[in-house]
């Protein structure tokens, strides 16, 4: 599929993100070599990238279907809180299954509102963002317990939150999910139909594709991935709060867009989404390290997003001219 042709390579949706990561490494090596290359810096950035990346993979899938999901931060929060809270009664495996079922259920409900209710996903999932966060407060009464020691030692908790070959489990899980889901998107029926649905819904319909089902699957997958990101987080660090996932939806969407997902649908990359998460996390981390004033990095995430969009646009044009 991919030839070693420069312009074909540049036409990859994630080309901008790949260049961005290279540039980020170059710039930070130049201005803060010892800080950037220290094990704890890259380890911390990768750990957080794994969590944000897991969410942004789901977001990328929804954006490819020309929809958006603003509720992922709250779904991440509710799934994590559900895991911790239900663990007392259901045990670790039961709590994980129940929490993921809650996540998937929310994705399904939102998808039904978008498809059957014919309400734009922007509105439905904005409602979801607030409603799910409200649910967290009502359910927990504002304070959340932590996992008892024996549950932390449970093999399943260790599988999601421990380390393997000295690498944090979350990093391996997100990398694995990215590879598997990339195969699903680019090498399987579902992906072909998802890209068609997002690229040109009327055409997809005319070729007999049940675009409603494709979108439902995309929304459910997105919520499941957001929920799974919370399991990855809490299996590692179970001390949490009702603020779990606060504002993370914005970073997840930004990561997907930096990674080359077009909001006009049908184009995107899961690798790009994870690299986008890496760029956001890396830039934020280094800004704080270098002593940028507090709360600057929020503006900076916005700035990175705009620069990435302009960069991606000009890349597409450049590649188009060379073809």
């Amino acid at each position: 599929m991919i030839t070693l042709n420069t312009s074909a390579f540049a036409r990859r949706p994630d080309f901008g993100a790949i260049v961005g990561v290279i540039m980020m490494f170059a710039v930070f090596s130049l201005i803060d070599f010892s800080g950037w290359w220290s094990g704890s810096t890259l380890g911390n950035i990768l750990q957080f990238t794994a969590i944000l990346g897991c969410m942004s993979i789901g977001q990328a899938i929804v954006i490819m279907a020309k929809e958006i999901d603003l509720s992922v931060g709250s779904v991440y929060g509710l799934t994590g809180i559900a895991f911790i809270t239900l663990e007392a009664d259901l045990g670790v495996p039961g709590a994980i299954i129940a929490a993921m079922a809650i996540a998937g259920g929310i994705g399904f409900l939102q998808a039904m509102a978008v498809i059957k209710g014919k309400i734009p996903s922007m509105i439905v999932t904005l409602g979801g963002l607030f409603a799910v966060r409200g649910l967290i407060y009502v359910w927990t009464g504002g304070s959340v317990r932590s996992l008892p020691a024996e549950s932390r030692a449970h093999w399943l908790t260790q599988l999601f939150g421990g380390e393997l070959f000295g690498i944090e489990a979350a990093i391996l899980w997100t990398a694995g999910l990215m590879v598997v889901l990339s195969l699903v998107i680019w090498r399987m029926k579902f992906g072909n139909r998802l890209l068609a649905t997002g690229g040109d819904e009327n055409t997809a319909l005319s070729q007999g594709i049940r675009t409603d089902r494709v979108k439902i699957r995309a929304f459910v997958l997105c919520s499941l991935l957001a929920g799974f990101a919370a399991i990855l987080t809490l299996a590692d660090k179970p001390q949490t709060h009702v603020t779990l996932g606060d504002l993370m939806e914005l970073e997840a969407i930004a990561a997907a867009v930096i990674g080359g997902c077009l909001l006009s649908g049908g184009r995107g990359s899961l690798l790009g989404a994870v690299l986008g998460a890496f760029i956001i996390t890396g830039v934020r981390y280094e800004l704080i390290s270098l002593g940028a004033p507090a709360s600057w990095y929020i503006s900076f995430v916005g700035l990175v997003l705009i620069v990435a969009l302009i960069f991606n646009q000009s890349l597409i044009r450049w590649a188009g001219n060379r073809a």
Partner: peptide, 21 residues
Amino acid sequence: YLFTGADPATFRSNLQAYLSS
């Protein structure tokens, strides 16, 4: 005045970035 965010993972990441440098 370090803006950490309220999400636990974000909080940890930001605080570690600051403390290690």
